[in-house]
Design a protein around this nucleic acid. Structure first.
Length: 329
DNA sequence: AAAAGCTCCAACCGCGTGTTT
DNA sequence: AAAACACGCGGTTGGAGCTTT
């Protein structure tokens, strides 16, 4: 017979997650590590289905997630990769280690689609490929399976090549994802993990910091307003003060979070990547941050280089899929 | 000032694939 | 081998916040 059911659908809570739930989930994963999602709702007491827990973790709480505006470079990569891979957001996300597939998908649907459409209209009226980075959409569509196959072959080849020089990979991957801090790269996997964890904990802490110190809604990119309100409600439980004046209680919770993540300073909120102040317990979380980074998805740096090279020489890109199957894009 | 329309994103849903029993 | 389920993915949606009228 099969497995037992993951969770019964009745009594399962839906909708936005509250910070309280987030804390419970993060605490549990810190202790037990991610995975075995089926057990999470029962063991944590969360009235959420396992799927929802996993989604919340992977899309929001997981270490290594960068939020906020996409950079021009990220935008370019998404456009290129979308053209190559189609709407395979998870695959695309694997080349943007700090972004979730959901984020990329949303960004594509809300921003890039429109942008491309605009440019397409512009190009049609003028028959002028003004911006080479978007010219991909002008090409005659190929069979998707063919592109996928070619891409996969190419990726495999590159991954293999890269795998032969692990040191190079570590530094390349690391510096690619953190160009501002390439000096501190020690090119070890542990360092990369610490980096990812710190980044994420920083995200969460920043999130809370925003709530605490900036009761006026700071940014939509942080979380939904409902979640924000829920947090304020949570903070002001047993306190008749308004949410905005719940500073002391909020600080207590904030401190709790701080200690949970072993933070010393949260004022690095503007720095995307903080290497310091990791508690030893954080190693559990470190293991989870986008496992592809520095391990499975080796060709990131190479692909990025290729993309950047293409940007400077956009006429054609040759994907060498074997001697007799070179494909010009 | 307020109503209407628009934008954006977190979360849900359903499906395909892989895994376990 | 087959059933039953978990997991992961991509598509879609609900609703809060923003902008325009």
């Amino acid at each position: 017979m099969g497995r037992p059911p993951c969770c019964d659908k009745e009594g399962v809570k839906k909708g936005p997650w509250t910070p309280e739930e987030d804390i419970i989930l993060v605490t549990y994963i810190q202790e037990h590590g991610p995975g075995n999602w089926r057990a999470v709702p029962t063991k944590t007491g969360l009235s959420r289905c396992s799927k929802s827990c996993r989604l919340r973790w992977t899309n929001y709480l997981r270490p290594g997630i960068k939020r906020g505006d996409f950079t021009e470079q990220e935008e370019k990569m998404i456009i290129h990769l979308q053209d190559l891979l189609g709407n395979r957001w998870a695959a695309i996300a694997s080349y943007l280690p700090q972004r979730t597939d959901n984020d990329i998908k949303n960004y594509w649907n809300t921003h890039l689609k429109k942008k491309l459409k605009k440019l397409e209209i512009g190009n049609n009226s003028e028959n002028n490929f003004g911006d080479e980075e978007f010219s991909a959409t002008q090409r005659i569509p190929r069979g998707q399976w063919e592109r996928r196959l070619q891409t996969d072959i190419q990726m495999a080849k590159k991954a293999l090549t890269e795998a032969l020089s692990p040191q190079k990979i570590a530094s390349a991957t690391f510096s690619a994802s953190n160009p501002s801090n390439s000096n501190s790269v020690s090119s070890t996997k542990e360092t990369a993990r610490s980096f990812c964890y710190a980044s994420s904990a920083d995200n969460i802490a920043r999130l809370l910091k925003g709530w605490m110190k900036n009761p006026i809604k700071s940014s939509r990119s942080s979380t939904s307003a409902l979640t924000q309100n829920s947090f304020n409600n949570f903070v002001s439980v047993g306190n008749n003060d308004t949410a905005s004046s719940s500073g002391t209680k909020g600080e207590v919770l904030y401190d709790t979070f701080e200690s949970l993540f072993g933070f010393e300073s949260l004022d690095s909120s503007n720095s995307e990547f903080s290497h310091q102040s990791l508690s030893p317990d954080a190693t559990v979380l470190q293991d989870e941050s986008k496992p592809e980074v520095g391990s499975e998805i080796m060709p990131f740096s190479l692909l990025e280089k290729w993309l950047l090279d293409e940007a400077s020489c956009p006429e054609k890109v040759v994907l060498d899929c074997g001697d007799d199957h070179a494909q010009v894009f």
